[in-house]
Design a protein around this nucleic acid. Structure first.
Lengths: 228, 228
DNA sequence: CAGGTCATTATTGTTGACAATAACGGTCGT
DNA sequence: ACGACCGTTATTGTCAACAATAATGACCTG
């Protein structure tokens, strides 16, 4: 009986390398613009150049790395304007995700989503200004909406492409003081719309939510609270 | 004087392999679902397994290939429903592209765009039912809008991810008899809105245009004109 | 002294061979 | 005869050495 047993543990080295590199880039261990050599990376992650190169190719294809032939690779550095553009893309794509989620999520999934919001609320109260939990909670929320859309490609593009680039800046972009509570309220209203199976409303609210987040960051940039 | 001279010709073998594989998949030379061995691919494109594997990784990361460890790679096969989902993503993303294009394209670019529409019109008249030119012209049109949005990531996602998957089916999806003319008319109205710098209208028209294309395909599928 | 040219050198790109894993076919047992 | 188990085999994953290219520094020249 060869049960589907499946996939969990058949990690190839290239996959490991890909994950390691990706998290390293997102967490900022590899600074944007930093020129990094292949051999140095090999030593750092204890693997050979073969799998590493494969992972590098994947990262480049996803836009987290830029690679000029014979000149090495460097972590992509996205300007403030480009970050704003990312949020504009998120706005329309997550709006679509919210609409489809309202139409397709199971009742159980919606209940779970509401439960996570409760958890986020307690996390925010306990955190008291520490924005870290809010960032994680926010990620969790949007992650569930994306998968709940039942649109495989949409989820892949959001989770696999956009979020990683946004998260690169989440780690140094502490959300402003009052924003976590406001964001949580916006999340609740979106889930409410989903629970009522009101796709149009869910889309509208999600777009406004992300637009608000974008404007929040834009304001901080113009106020010089953030360095690019 | 080392002019920026630049990029055109520094193609690495992995890049070649990537392009070859991609076009082969899009043109249907590699049938969806077909299980293909690495060595066979090497012989087919005259290269070694190193660069090939690198290209394979990139293709997998873009969703054109699926690869199970130690089990080989196979071309992704997208169902009718998934194709519809792709069009829903296109709808919102290209809507955004059209809006930003209306705000950001130069007058010269708009003039060029109008000129290409004229060229498409003559092509359609000359083609007389041959849908091939329409498909190419349509691709050209959407390509220009995407780049005209001045949103690098948006253009990358549209041109690098979505279009290739859609084009996989363009080659066997001949557009219906009257559709080319209708599509051209829709294109003209979109460009008109862009020329008037009316972003909202351009977005609305583009979304409606893609929605119409989606419904057109959906109808053909339900009518059984198409095999999946 | 400044600018350019050339050789050096380090890094990347590529290749072929080696090892590990999973699929496949045959055999055995029930 | 059907099902499960096991050995074989082919394919994939990995590795280390080779070759080619571009960046770096010194040297020469105007």
């Amino acid at each position: 009986m060869n049960r589907i047993a499946a996939l969990p543990q058949s990690l190839t080295r290239a996959d490991e390398a890909f994950d390691c590199l990706q998290t390293a880039i997102v967490k900022g261990d590899l600074a944007p613009g930093e020129k990094i050599g292949e051999v140095e990376l090999c030593a750092r992650f204890n693997l050979t150049r073969g799998p590493l190169r494969e992972a590098l190719g994947r990262l480049e294809s996803r836009g987290l790395l830029v690679r000029r032939p014979h000149a090495g690779v460097k972590v992509v550095s996205v300007s403030a304007e480009e970050l704003m553009e990312l949020y504009r893309i998120r706005e329309v794509m997550e709006g679509l995700a919210a609409r489809q989620a309202a139409e397709r999520m199971t009742d159980q999934e919606i209940a779970d989503l509401q439960a996570t919001l409760d958890a986020h609320e307690t996390m925010i109260e306990e955190a008291h200004g520490q924005a870290y939990y809010q960032a994680e909670g926010d990620y969790d929320f949007h992650h569930r909406i994306a998968t709940g859309s039942r649109n495989a490609k949409l989820a892949q593009m959001l989770l696999g492409d956009l979020y990683y680039m946004v998260r690169m800046y989440r780690y140094r972009l502490s959300t402003s003081s009052g924003r976590p509570h406001r964001a949580l309220g916006e999340h609740r209203r979106i889930v409410e719309a989903i629970a009522q199976r009101d796709g149009e409303l869910a889309e509208f609210l999600m777009k406004r939510h992300i637009n608000a987040a974008r404007q929040n960051i834009e304001r901080k940039i113009t106020e010089g609270e953030i360095s690019f």
